[in-house]
């Protein structure tokens, strides 16, 4: 997804320059209305004064950002010291999303490789199978996951029934349950881009390397992985970014004992707090963070491609 766009004829493009402008118009309008406008609204709201019980007063205020970075005590009248609360919430979310991404990569890469190395006729079927669970609503899949992992669920019945464990393993309401939930929610986003990359990979290169006595590990590390890296990077981004903002899995599987970024932001709009500017500010900070991560990826990519 990230890699394929660079190629294309340059000599013919002049002929179609005018047509292209018009053909791209829908894309630009969509980007403007669906991406830039909402972000602009968020940015503006984050600098407004909060209205009690939701809403904004149209007066400039840094209150939301002050609340994010400044700890002024329980009663809000102490001098500013560093506020760790929200940094801690952000760090927790990054860690959870990161773990879910690694888990997806560990399972997703072999899966994608397996599919891409089947005979062409079978591949469609395998891809189809990977996507089937995703016809079901995310909420239902997350709740089902909870039923599987419960103390008295099938997994624990199996573990205790076979004598592997004497006590059921407490998974629900732990961080691990959240990671599993996120992993399961977004796995196809890892499998599909990697599959697309491996499918395009020329396996003759691997054979050539083997013929030159490269061990299998070296072939994987120095030939295959660099070739399919764009797919891996795309997969990681597609899993990491939505995991970072999700609140279904943390609420249902993690027990909502601790805020994640997503639930913190949700609380500002749907909860008692009703602090829209703060919700907008937290969203802006999250967005900035994601942008920085994407830029780092993009620069590395550019470097690798020379």
């Amino acid at each position: 997804m990230a890699g394929g766009a660079a190629t294309g004829g340059s000599s013919t493009s002049d002929t179609y320059a005018e047509a292209r402008t018009w053909l791209l118009l829908p894309a630009w309008v969509t980007l403007g209305i669906l991406v830039l406008a909402p972000v602009a609204i968020m940015l503006v709201y984050s600098f407004l004064t909060k209205e009690f019980r939701g809403g904004v007063i149209w007066e400039f205020s840094l209150g939301a950002y002050d609340q994010f970075f400044c700890n002024r005590g329980l009663f809000g009248d102490e001098p500013c010291s560093i506020e760790w609360t929200y940094i801690q919430i952000f760090w927790r979310s990054i860690w959870q999303a990161g773990a879910a991404t690694l888990l997806s990569l560990a399972i997703g890469f072999p899966t994608a490789y397996f599919i891409a190395t089947r005979p062409p006729r079978q591949r469609t079927l395998w891809v189809f199978l990977v996507t089937i669970p995703y016809w079901v609503n995310l909420l239902i899949r997350t709740v089902s996951m909870k039923f599987l992992l419960r103390d008295e669920g099938p997994l624990n019945d199996f573990l205790t029934g076979t004598g592997l464990l004497s006590e059921p393993l407490a998974i629900v309401n732990t961080n691990f349950a959240v990671q599993l939930g996120l992993f399961y929610s977004y796995l196809p986003f890892m499998v599909l881009p990697i599959y697309a990359a491996v499918e395009r990979y020329n396996f003759a290169l691997s054979e050539a390397a083997s013929d030159l006595y490269a061990p299998r590990w070296t072939v994987l590390r120095r030939i295959l992985l660099p070739s399919v890296k764009p797919g891996i990077v795309a997969g990681c981004i597609l899993v990491f970014v939505p995991s970072l903002g999700s609140f279904l899995a943390p609420d249902l599987l993690g027990g909502a004992r601790n805020f994640m970024i997503g639930s913190l932001i949700e609380e500002q709009f749907k909860g008692n707090a009703g602090n829209w500017p703060f919700g907008a500010a937290a969203s802006m900070i999250l967005l900035t963070m994601v942008l920085i991560i994407l830029l780092i990826f993009a620069r590395q990519q550019a470097k690798a491609e020379g």
Partner: peptide, 10 residues
């Protein structure tokens, strides 16, 4: 009270 709630769930 909002602050106490945030402290509770942070």
């Amino acid at each position: 009270y909002d602050q106490i709630w945030t402290n509770l769930k942070k």
